[in-house]
Design a protein around this nucleic acid. Structure first.
Length: 577
RNA sequence: UGGGAGAUCGUCUAACGGUAGGACAACGGACUCUGACUCCGUUUAUCUAGGUUCGAAUCCUAGUCUCCCAGCCA
């Protein structure tokens, strides 16, 4: 990848630089991207991926992909596969693929140590009772009546929990910290719960599963993670993260991680530092897994990879190149400020990337017949077009040209507004790569609708001739009606028609703000060389936008193109259209 | 009324006591065989009030506003 050198050091990069200068972690840099496999990755995750893998790459460090699979009731292998694919697609490769479940024995051994040390206890309170004992945001909690059990009793109970003697929810293992803490995460948080369910990785080996706060910090430590980057909402979990690592003291208790070496899961045990940054939010979309899941489940979209979804598989199918997402992440920066990025920033990144990387083609999505009267019936020739206006390395292609063409219906107006630069009765326009045509007459149907325009071609203005220098105000695109290939064109727009679909303060929910025009399918015509390409080939259809051959539905016999993004259109924006 | 965090152009983001800069957006213009791209230009910001200082976005004091936290989710 060719990410440009960073313009400045954001606070996390600066921390890493400072740590290395101070010799912290022996100068090592190790990060991890730790998704829970309970949904598809979205654009927000791209920020975390770029940050974690990017920092590791910049400093010659390592970055693991770690599935945070501590809750088997919500997780699924389908998500594991999609997540791996999305990370690779974004342009990153993990040093090691790990699972929190790889460390279940370590978590367990650490829990027994905490019990031995009087730092954890088995609590028999029900979930409701725990809630009642926890207090509120402004009132301290009360100690559990089971808080002072002996280490022996706790150990016996905990071992029997593991052995499966107790039903779901009947007991938890809790850290013994401080029920009066202002930080609710420190009010004796549960670190193990009983769940008699099969785990996608460990099968039925366990019926007790560790909680996130407890498992995550230990996972980081045993992987030798130096900088544990996460989002802002974990800020007040950091004291618990640090408490666990301090009390367990892995570096001085090699017996706790002994189970790992036999499986080759070794790393220098580290003292990781959790650092929080703000999420990437986009306007005109929703990003929470719950809402994305609902859109899929309620069939409001066609699946997780619907091109309107902000999922990575969705934007991939839409035609956004991975480099555009990397550019977006570079552009939005890394800070601790809550922020919402304008969708236009993303679109700008997509256009910038595709403008450089996509070959040009001609296509017509709303066809109107144009006949060149001064060409003989059956006239046929082959024109040569450059594939890219600014990059000769793209080479040239052949484009068939004939007497009857399709042009874009909006490029002709019988009664044009002021400033209209295209074809009008009696007016002239340049046909891209062909020459200047003059509109001589119209054909209308019984409704008065124009069905064809008849023109004459000024043959002195064909490319290469001196007359080609003659200026006309507009140039329009076309395809040969006799040679063009029919294609399904899917025109996508933003899924929501309000900037903040999450805002339900007016009683409406994101479901009420779905944009009914977010997907329009039309039949268009494309030049032959646009049809014979593999899926996911990106083109600029000149004057229309950037389009990509659908990843699944496209083939050369039945071309299907998705519009990733329109071109900037200062004419339409001026409201003249 | 507890704990944690954050406030700089419309939106992001720099400036680490010394010219408030950049990107995206918007607007105007140039160029153009894509009303694209590119180029040029313009508009718009330090939450408030005090204080320290030759000098404050930056340091101090007091306030204001916003976000997160009461899962046996992550």
């Amino acid at each position: 990848m060719t990410n440009e050198a960073p313009q400045h050091n954001h606070f996390i990069r600066q921390t890493v630089i400072d740590d290395r200068a101070a010799g912290k972690h022996g100068g090592r840099v190790a990060t991890r991207f730790p998704p829970e496999p309970n949904g598809y990755l979205h654009i927000g995750h791209a920020k975390s991926i770029c940050l974690n893998f990017g920092i590791a790459r910049e400093f010659g460090g390592r970055c693991n992909l770690r599935f945070d699979d501590t809750n088997p009731t919500k997780e699924d292998l389908e998500y594991v596969e999609s997540i791996k694919q999305d990370v690779l697609w974004l342009g990153f490769a993990w040093d090691e693929l790990r699972h929190a479940s790889d460390y279940f024995e370590v978590f367990y051994a650490c829990a027994e140590k905490l019990i031995h040390d009087g730092k954890a206890y088995v609590c028999d309170l029900s979930a409701d009772e725990v809630r009642a004992y926890r207090g509120t945001l402004t009132e301290p909690g009360r100690n559990s009546p089971f808080r002072d059990r002996s280490a022996e009793e706790n150990l016996d109970l905990f071992r029997r929990m593991r052995a499966g003697e107790f039903p779901n929810g009947s007991r938890t293992l809790r850290a013994k910290i401080d029920m009066s803490s202002g930080n609710i995460n420190l009010r004796d948080p549960a670190i193990y719960r009983i769940r008699h369910v099969e785990h996608q990785n460990t099968g039925n080996a366990w019926c007790i599963y560790p909680m996130y706060d407890y498992a995550h910090c230990i996972s980081d430590a045993v992987e030798g993670i130096t900088h544990s980057l996460c989002t802002l909402e974990f800020e007040d979990h950091r004291p618990l993260y640090n408490w666990c690592l301090h009390e367990i003291d892995l570096p001085n208790h090699p017996e706790l991680t002994g189970s790992l070496s036999a499986r080759g899961l070794t790393a220098p045990i580290g003292q990781p530092q959790q650092i929080e940054f703000s999420r990437l939010n986009l306007d005109f979309t929703v990003m929470s897994k719950r809402k994305l899941m609902a859109l899929v489940d309620e069939a409001l979209v066609a699946g997780w990879d619907d091109p309107r979804m902000p999922t990575l598989s969705g934007v991939r199918r839409r035609g956004f190149p991975p480099a555009a997402l990397r550019l977006l992440c570079e552009r939005v920066g890394v800070t601790k400020q809550n922020s919402v990025i304008e969708f236009s920033v993303l679109e700008g990144c997509v256009r910038e990337e595709l403008d450089a990387s996509a070959a040009r083609r001609l296509a017509v999505i709303d066809p109107l017949k144009l006949v060149i009267d001064n060409l003989p019936d059956g006239h046929s020739e082959t024109l040569t077009f450059p594939n890219h206006p600014k990059n000769e390395a793209f080479g040239n292609r052949s484009v068939p040209f004939s007497r009857e063409l399709w042009i874009e219906r909006e490029d002709f107006m019988e009664l044009p507004p002021k400033g209209f630069h295209r074809l009008v009765p009696g007016g002239e326009v340049r046909l891209r790569g062909v020459g200047i045509v003059k509109c001589e007459s119209l054909v209308k149907d019984t409704n008065g609708q124009v069905t064809a325009v008849h023109c004459t071609l000024d043959t002195d203005t064909r490319p290469g001739l001196p007359g080609a220098e003659r200026k006309v105000k507009g140039t329009i695109h076309w395809v040969s009606a006799t040679d063009a290939i029919a294609a399904e064109i899917r025109l996508y727009d933003r899924l929501f028609n309000v900037a903040n679909p999450d805002d339900d303060s007016d009683g409406k929910t994101y479901r009420d703000h779905l944009n009914p025009d977010s997907r329009r399918v039309v039949q268009g015509w494309i030049e032959p060389s646009a049809a014979h390409v593999p899926p996911e080939t990106a083109f600029q259809f000149e004057r229309l936008g950037f389009f990509v051959a659908d990843r699944y539905d496209h083939n050369e016999h039945k071309p299907v193109f998705n519009r990733a993004v329109t071109l900037r259109d200062s004419w339409a924006k001026a409201g003249k259209n």
